[in-house]
Design a protein around this nucleic acid. Structure first.
Ligand SMILES: [Zn+2]
Ligand SMILES: [Zn+2]
Ligand SMILES: [Zn+2]
Ligand SMILES: [Zn+2]
Lengths: 166, 166
DNA sequence: AGACTATATGTTATAATGTTTCATTCATGA
DNA sequence: TCATGAATGAAACATTATAACATATAGTCT
């Protein structure tokens, strides 16, 4: 049925006023489904960490996560968070932003991928792209130099539509 | 004179057997010239750190630099290295590789720019690109989303021509 | 159920990376 | 030569991440 509307992907830069509780609920439900399909275990701890990661649409540091997790689990320590993040990243539910030593929920976790990120330096809101043109431009130049690409890190900082002057 | 050969840029992936002492000497001489032109001060310490950074064509961590610097300056401490690196980065003589928490000498320091890096995971050799097609692909998608780009981090890992099987 | 196994989590310590602060030295120019 | 600002020395501290080992939990087999 080629004329059916596909489900709209979430806007790359959600409006500050959007119903973020729904984003979180969706992300958790999707994670549950995907882990179920894959035989991966989304334990209580991992679910809690994923929920904390999704508290905003911006990257959050491991120790900030830890502070918040401690409200839920008094004994939480750095490995508690890092181990959960490791599994969540393996499952493609969370990405790491190297520039910021921080983590963000994946916007399209259905298929494994490396994201490309547009990070607002003012409000932190971050859009995740998966733009073939960018990957292709990299791939093409690498190939010309005889370089076999494994991983691509693309992290762009700037101002999001809400924070941009004018 | 459109038919004159322009000076060849250094190969993005230098052969392992190349005369690297010449790379280092060229990099130091260029740095000297550029700093002279700009009224920036390439002090003895900064020159030493730049030379250590250029010991290879791969990224090197701040504490590895510190270890080596201590052979030359017994009292060196972390700020010794980080302060020198800060100045060298301001002058565009060194880039930071966020993925690796490491630093590498800039291959074309004449004009200020952010590099794009192809990093060999086997031997560490890293090529610095300044490929308009990559920057353009990013810029174009960002613009479409209303995002005003400030900085672009492009760090690609893989295997260089020398390390690639076949 | 009971024993076995693999996975997950708790707990403590430590490693790796990066910054702040204040004192001292050095270059430069009035 | 003295005043000034930049650069470096030195110590402490902050942040980010991992290692090592103990305990608990969840499935699996008998
Ligand atoms: Zn949201
Ligand atoms: Zn913003
Ligand atoms: Zn060389
Ligand atoms: Zn290589």
């Amino acid at each position: 049925m080629p004329h059916a509307h596909p489900p709209l992907p979430p806007a790359p830069f959600p409006a500050p006023s959007h119903d973020h509780a729904r984003c979180v609920a969706t992300a958790l439900a999707t994670a549950e489904t995907l882990c179920g399909e894959r035989g991966a275990r989304l334990t209580g701890l991992r679910r809690q960490v994923l929920e904390l990661v999704w508290e905003s649409h911006g990257p959050i540091g491991a120790y900030d996560l830890l502070d918040r997790l401690r409200a839920l689990r008094s004994g939480a320590a750095p490995p508690t968070v890092y181990r959960a993040l490791e599994v969540l990243m393996e499952q493609g539910l969370v990405h790491r932003i190297n520039r910021l030593n921080a983590f963000i929920g994946c916007a399209h976790p259905d298929a494994p991928h490396e994201g490309q990120f547009l990070i607002c330096t003012r409000c932190g809101t971050t859009a995740e792209l998966d733009e073939p043109a960018i990957a292709h431009a990299i791939e093409q130049r690498a190939r010309a130099l005889g370089f076999a690409v494994e991983h691509r890190t693309v992290e762009v900082t700037g101002l999001c539509p809400s924070c941009r002057p004018g």
